[in-house]
C-alpha cells in the first residue's frame, strides 16, 4: 500500500505517521510538502497532527489553502482514501471535506492523555477489522477538539452511520464524564458520505506499538491494508498479534 503523508509548516506528527506506516505496517511511504502538487499516486493520504501555520486564525483555516490541498480535495472526490488526524481532522473540516467545526475544549485546557473510544461503524475502509462496539485505547492531544455541528448535520451523521468513534469508558459506556473535550454526541471521529474520508481527534499513530502503551491503533491501519489487498487481489500480509 502506498501512503502519502502531507507535511504543512507546523505539522509535528508527520514523522510518527511515516514511521508507523513504514516500520510497523511495512507500507511504501512518502512525504508530500504542502507546496507540492504531486500526491505521488497513493492509496492513502494522511493529514497528520500538529499546529499547521501556528493554528493562527482558526485551527486548520490557513492550511486548507495550502497548494497541495487542491489535489487532496480532488483525490478525495475521486474516492481516494484520506485520513485526517487531530489537526488533520481540523483541516478536513475547514476544507469542507467533512461537516462541522471545532470549538476550544470545554475545559479550555490542552488535553493530552489516553482515552477510550467506542467503535460505532465497522463497515468502513478504516474500521473493517474492528468489531461493533470494540473499545480502543488511543491518546488525544489537542486544545480544540470540541466538535460541533448544526442539529441537522448531527442527525444526518447519526442516521447515515457516519459517526465512526465516540469517547467512552473502558467498558464502552458513553457519558459526559468520559468526554474529554465537550464534543457534541461524544464524537471523536466522523467520515464523509462515501466513506473514504475519515477525520479523528485521537492519534492512532501514537498507539500502534506495544512499547508505547497501546497498539490499538493498528486496527485502523490493518483495516486499510485489508481493503487495499482485496482491491489489488493480493492477500493481506500483516501478521496477527
Amino acid at each position: 500500500m502506498k501512503v502519502s503523508v502531507i507535511v504543512f509548516p507546523g505539522s509535528n506528527c508527520d514523522s510518527d505517521c511515516w514511521h508507523v506506516m513504514r516500520d510497523v505496517m511495512k507500507c511504501d511511504v512518502s512525504y508530500v510538502w504542502h507546496k507540492d502538487h504531486d500526491l505521488k499516486n497513493p492509496d492513502l493520504v494522511i493529514l497528520p497532527g500538529g499546529f499547521s501555520y501556528g493554528d493562527y486564525l482558526r485551527c486548520g483555516a490557513i492550511a486548507r489553502f495550502s497548494p497541495v490541498m487542491k489535489e487532496v480535495v480532488e483525490y478525495a472526490r475521486r474516492d481516494g482514501n484520506v485520513l485526517g488526524i487531530c489537526n488533520g481532522f481540523q483541516i478536513l473540516l475547514e476544507a469542507g471535506l467533512l461537516p462541522g467545526a471545532m470549538l476550544p475544549n470545554r475545559s479550555l485546557k490542552f488535553v493530552c492523555k489516553h482515552v477510550w473510544l467506542r467503535t460505532e461503524n465497522t463497515g468502513s475502509t478504516f474500521t473493517n477489522r474492528l468489531k461493533n462496539g470494540q473499545v480502543l485505547r488511543i491518546p488525544i492531544a489537542h486544545g480544540e477538539g470540541n466538535y460541533t455541528a448544526s442539529p441537522d448535520t448531527l442527525k444526518e451523521l447519526q442516521d447515515q452511520n457516519r459517526i465512526v468513534f465516540r469517547y467512552s469508558s473502558e467498558s464502552g459506556q458513553v457519558a459526559d464524564e468520559f468526554n474529554p473535550n465537550g464534543a457534541a454526541e461524544h464524537i471523536a471521529g466522523i467520515m464523509n458520505e462515501k466513506g473514504n474520508v475519515l477525520g479523528m481527534m485521537p492519534h492512532p499513530e501514537r498507539a500502534s506499538e506495544d512499547i508505547l502503551g497501546s497498539d490499538d491503533g493498528r486496527a485502523i491501519w490493518e483495516s486499510l491494508l485489508s481493503c487495499h489487498s482485496r482491491e489489488s487481489g493480493n492477500p493481506a500480509t500483516f501478521s496477527h498479534r
Binding site: L57, R58, A61, I62, F65, L93, E94, P99, G100, A101, L103, T148, A149, S150
Partner: peptide, 8 residues
C-alpha cells in the same frame, strides 16, 4: 472565504 467559519 477565510476570516469567518460560517458553521460557528
Amino acid at each position: 472565504k477565510l476570516l469567518v467559519n460560517p458553521v460557528i
